[in-house]
Design a protein around this nucleic acid. Sequence first.
DNA 1: ACCTGAACACCGTTCAAGT
DNA 2: ACCTGAACACCGTTCAAGT
Lengths: 213, 213
Amino acid sequence: MGRPARLSREAIVAAARRILGTEGVGSLSMRRLAKDLDSTPMALYHHVKDKDELLLLLLEEHAAQFPRPDLPPEPRDQLITAAQLLHDILAECPWIVEVLASDDLMAVSALWIVENIIDGAVRCGMTPEQAVYAYRVIWYYTAGELMLRASRGKHYSRPDAGAHREKAFANLDPAQFPRLSALAGRWPTLTARDTHRSGLIAVIDGLLRQTVG
Amino acid sequence: MGRPARLSREAIVAAARRILGTEGVGSLSMRRLAKDLDSTPMALYHHVKDKDELLLLLLEEHAAQFPRPDLPPEPRDQLITAAQLLHDILAECPWIVEVLASDDLMAVSALWIVENIIDGAVRCGMTPEQAVYAYRVIWYYTAGELMLRASRGKHYSRPDAGAHREKAFANLDPAQFPRLSALAGRWPTLTARDTHRSGLIAVIDGLLRQTVG
DNA sequence: ACCTGAACACCGTTCAAGT
DNA sequence: ACCTGAACACCGTTCAAGT
């Protein structure tokens, strides 16, 4: 019957997800993964093309397992809810943004969301061209939020987190930077707030006004 | 008189900028930099704290040298022009976005732009809190656009660029994805368009409507 | 087909020693 | 103070060989 393969795509993806969950993306390397599987780095390359493919497999798995709620029928609500959902799915694997960036299309298991964003936009009165434009603006906002959220998470445990910022604020000339000086004390609190949804609504309504009045 | 230091911050930054300009961020490593300076990697650490500090020095230099045009007096125009300027300054060094992300404040030589964004927002009628919120939404949009632009640049020369996307579109079920199927052929053209400014205006007007009606 | 070992061509950074 | 050499603890990936 031919000896069974020791490794498999599934086993590799499962081990990778375990590392991701317990130690973060920073710890996920082909070598570390091989060690966890009692194998060698090169054995992995028989099952996945390269590290990017492995990361995409992880996203596919994550997105496929994510619940698919019914979307509201009203087109603007559908647009907002779908865009929010796109953010929420990726918020749990923000490391994927860099991989997705190389091609500007979502992973296939998250494509239904893109379809719903475009559909909502068209049903709001946009042309298909305008709907793609709106999707891109929403995607830039979402990707930026995810990237900055991820690197905040990466550095928040450092003892000197925000040291550079505090020093910059302390050296601020109030005559030259009146607005920033006045805000200095409240800046950390204000920037720590989660304003994603509210910002998303502003972005979408701005796009709707610009295109369909 | 004590022998002069062979290396200096300035010489290191200059060599780094040369590598950045001719070969891109991917080629900028402390070891490569040392080689270009006929020195050793560790000699560099006597003049800069670490690689992140070096990258910030490069941004400071770039932003300081950038022209500082007068901004339009009308607050909404000031807001739009300042936000556009923020994008244009960073568009020439998009690799900095990751470094800036760790602290959520701009490099000091670009702070005058942040001041003007906040000022424009306040003069449009926003409270300082709302102005910081607006700045953050604008920054997310800008950072996302820059990041995706950068990785498009990184991969556009590959022979298989867009291969994954094309295959994904080809396998699309028109019944399940009517909007995307209809757009498939035009997707590459539509997503290649530079819509930054138009999107920025939509974002800003959306924010203004949401906060000051 | 699947896996191993060794190698290639790199990283950022620390440590101990030199002048 | 400034610099060097060697080392630490890693990377992703290719190549040639084994079963």
